[in-house]
Every structure is written in structure tokens, then in C-alpha cells.
Amino acid sequence: MDYPLPQVTPLTEPFWGALRRGRIAFQACACGHRWLPAREACPRCLGTDHRWEDGSGRAQVVSWVVYHTAHHDAFKDRVPYNVAIVELAEGPRLITNVRAPHDTLRVGMPVVLAVEEEAGFALARFAPAAA
């Protein structure tokens, strides 16, 4: 079965490239705003004076859901699995999976980047931060 991998574009390549190095990256604008997903222009000032920065990998859980049915064959053997929104310590948010038992997930739960490969492609998953 084909795993549903991201469609890498010149715009998003720096994000996926950072994960191959084991880091989470986001765009940071001269105006101070930091964001994901990748955009050509800063959504706050609309300027293009921005660059990619590596984050600390620290984040916290914003919300999550647990799938009990799969919408794609690649996930049939993975249910139940969670999908979460996390907010990086630096501010940007993203969709991910948290490698923790579902009943331990909490809003504000501290997590850290735990890069995992699917079909040779590095994805930004997260795991509970050490206490």
C-alpha cells in the first residue's frame, strides 16, 4: 500500500529537510512573527523578509482526536491512533501524532520532537517530555 506522503514543493522543502536533520523548522519574519505551514509572505505583515529557523523541539498539546476507523489503507492496522495539534515553544502550530497512550493526553501536556520515518520520509512526531 502507498503511504500518503507529503507533496514536497520548493516552498516546503526546508521544513522537511530540517526533519531529515532531526530538527523542527519554521519561518521567522523580520517583523517578529513566526509561523507554519510554509508561506511565501508573512501572514502578519505580508512582507517577504523572512527565513527558516530551527526550533527547540519543545511543544505542548493543544487538542487531539483518536481515530477508530481508517480513511486510508495505510492506517488500517494502526487504529486506534491519535492525531494532535501541538504548539511549538516558539509559537507555530502543526498537526502531528503524539507517541503516548491516548488516555494520558492532556491540553498543555509538554511534548518533544521525535522524528520518525514512514516509507523513508522523515515526519514530525512528538513524544511526552521527560518530567
Binding site: Y3, P4, L5, P6, Q7, T12, P37, V62, S63, W64, V65, Y67, A70, H71, H72, A74, F75, R78, Y81, V83, I85, L94, I95, T96, N97, R106, V107, E118, F121, L123, R125
Partner: peptide, 26 residues
């Protein structure tokens, strides 16, 4: 599939509302 995030299993309209439901409930 919800764009590149399908790589994390992020599919469907209902899941988006589940995310809101969870945040509200928590």
C-alpha cells in the same frame, strides 16, 4: 485527506470537529 497532514492520518471533516469538541470538553 487534509493536505500534507494526511501523512499523520489527518483525514475527514468529522475529525476537524472532533478536534474542536475535544478542546471544548477539556
Amino acid at each position: 485527506p487534509r493536505g500534507d497532514d494526511a501523512a499523520y492520518g489527518w483525514f475527514s471533516t468529522a475529525a476537524g470537529y472532533a478536534m474542536i469538541h475535544q478542546a471544548y470538553a477539556q
